[in-house]
Amino acid sequence: MLHVLTHNILPVFALLALGFIMGRARTASMDEARAANRIAFLVLQPPLIFMLLTGLDLGAIRWDALGLYALCEVAAFILAFLLARHVLRCDFAEAWLLGMAVVFVNTLLYIWPIATLIYGEAGAMPITAIVALDASVSFAFFIISIEFIAGKGDLGGTLGRMARNPVLITIVLSVALNLLAVPIPEPLLTAARFAGAGAAPLTLFAMGVVLSSHSIRPRATVAAISATKLLGLPLLVAGAFALAAPENDWRQLFLLAAAGPSGAMTFSLALLYGVRTDNIAPVIVWTSVLSLVSLAWLA
Rank of each mutant, 00 (worst) to 15 (best):
V4R: 12
V4E: 10
T6V: 07
H7R: 11
P11N: 02
F13R: 00
A14Y: 02
L16F: 06
L18N: 06
L18I: 10
F20S: 03
F20E: 03
F20V: 05
I21E: 00
G23W: 00
R24Y: 01
R24C: 03
R24A: 01
R26P: 00
S29M: 02
D31K: 11
A33S: 01
A35E: 15
A36N: 09
I39P: 11
A40Y: 07
V43R: 03
L44C: 05
P46N: 01
I49E: 08
F50C: 06
T54E: 14
L56Y: 13
G59Q: 11
A60C: 09
A60P: 07
I61A: 07
W63L: 09
D64T: 10
L66P: 05
Y69G: 10
C72P: 12
C72H: 09
C72W: 08
A80P: 01
F81P: 00
L83K: 03
H86A: 01
L88P: 09
L88N: 01
R89A: 05
F92C: 00
A93E: 10
W96E: 01
L97Y: 02
L98H: 03
G99W: 00
A101M: 10
V102H: 03
T107Q: 11
L108K: 11
W112K: 12
T116V: 08
T116I: 05
A122D: 09
A122Q: 13
I127N: 12
I127H: 09
A129R: 11
V131M: 15
V131G: 14
A135F: 08
V137M: 13
F141N: 15
F141R: 14
I143R: 13
I144M: 11
I144H: 09
S145V: 08
I149M: 00
I149S: 02
G151T: 04
G153M: 02
D154Q: 02
D154C: 00
L155N: 07
G156L: 12
T158L: 03
R161W: 09
R161M: 09
A163G: 10
V167G: 06
V167Y: 08
I169Q: 06
T170W: 04
V172T: 11
L173N: 08
V175K: 06
L177F: 13
L180W: 14
P183M: 15
P183C: 15
P183R: 15
P187I: 06
L188M: 13
L188W: 11
T190M: 14
A192G: 14
R193V: 12
G198K: 01
G198P: 04
A199C: 06
A199W: 02
L204K: 04
V209K: 00
V210T: 08
L211W: 06
H214G: 09
S215Y: 08
S215H: 11
P218H: 04
A220T: 12
A223Y: 10
A224C: 07
A224W: 01
I225N: 03
I225C: 06
A227T: 12
K229W: 04
L230K: 10
G232P: 11
G232I: 07
L233T: 09
L235F: 14
A238W: 13
P246Y: 10
N248V: 12
W250A: 15
G260V: 03
G263N: 08
M265V: 14
F267G: 14
A270R: 04
Y273F: 08
V275G: 00
V275S: 02
N279H: 04
A281R: 02
V283S: 05
T287F: 07
T287E: 07
T287W: 04
T287H: 07
S288H: 09
S291A: 13
S294M: 12
W297L: 10
L298H: 00
A299T: 06
A299N: 05
